[in-house]
């Protein structure tokens, strides 16, 4: 089963890369071929948010059960979320350079991803500042939950402050990308494929961390 899933991930992502670059797309004003970036950039942002809320979910589970495995899961998910957050920032700012003219211009979307980066950074800073394992698990769980309840406020705040250039159905209706069916198919498969890739990497990371934990408790 697992083998099958990993092959499926390989096939889906390969297909997304090939079709994403090759398949003709409808003419989109001001973006043109650059609109293809969304096949790869949007899944990155989506996974960094997903991983953040998964981490929060495992934190809640940890506080409820005090099962150390949940802390491992929460930490692993946060680490992967951090990776994808960096990738989303890098790909996004490259895209911004060519369609808006500068790598970083504090667009609401860029601000949001920046805040997510800050939260991940603070979470790891907190973890490295606590020595005792139980304390570390407990306090970082509490912090990730507190951070997660404040994040949804940006949904209400951001549209009030500045207008966005980001092509998005929620924030900016003028810049909306009208996808035709083939584009939508590639886009959705990209989302599915990258999400599966994330889950697979998460599984690997969790297994490695569990081994590490076992080793540590054996040597103690």
């Amino acid at each position: 089963m697992k083998n099958f899933i990993t092959y499926a991930i390989f096939v889906i992502i390969s297909a997304v890369i090939i079709l994403g670059l090759a398949l003709p797309i409808p003419d989109i004003p001001a973006l043109g071929d650059k609109a293809r970036v969304l096949y790869f950039h949007v899944p990155m942002s989506w996974i960094s948010v997903l991983a953040f809320f998964m981490s929060m979910w495992y934190s809640i589970r940890y506080l409820k059960t005090r099962d150390h495995n949940y802390d491992i899961k929460s930490y692993s998910s946060a680490q992967l979320g951090f990776l994808f957050c960096i990738l989303a920032t890098a790909t996004g700012s490259l895209w911004a350079k060519f369609s808006w003219g500068s790598f970083w211009n504090w667009d609401p979307r860029q601000t949001s991803i920046f805040i997510l980066l800050l939260i991940y950074g603070a979470y790891f800073a907190l973890r490295s500042a606590i020595e005792s394992e139980d304390q570390r698990a407990k306090l970082s769980s509490v912090y990730s939950i507190i951070a997660a309840v404040t994040v949804p406020f940006f949904v209400f705040i951001m549209p009030r402050i500045v207008e966005s250039l980001h092509p998005d159905p929620i924030l900016n209706t003028q810049g909306k990308i009208n996808m035709d069916s083939s584009m939508l198919t590639v886009f959705l498969s990209a989302l599915v494929g990258f999400t599966m890739l994330y889950l697979w990497m998460l599984d690997l990371k969790i297994r490695a961390e569990k081994l590490n934990y076992k080793k540590l408790s054996l040597t103690d």
């Binding site: 670059l21 043109g32 293809r36 970036v37 790869f40 990738l87 790909t91 490259l94 060519f98 890739l197």
Partner: peptide, 17 residues
């Protein structure tokens, strides 16, 4: 040739992962 930007972005993701 904005298609190459897309290629560059795919490369960034690949390098990261």
């Amino acid at each position: 040739n904005s298609l190459y930007i897309v290629l560059l972005i795919v490369l960034i993701i690949w390098v990261g992962i």
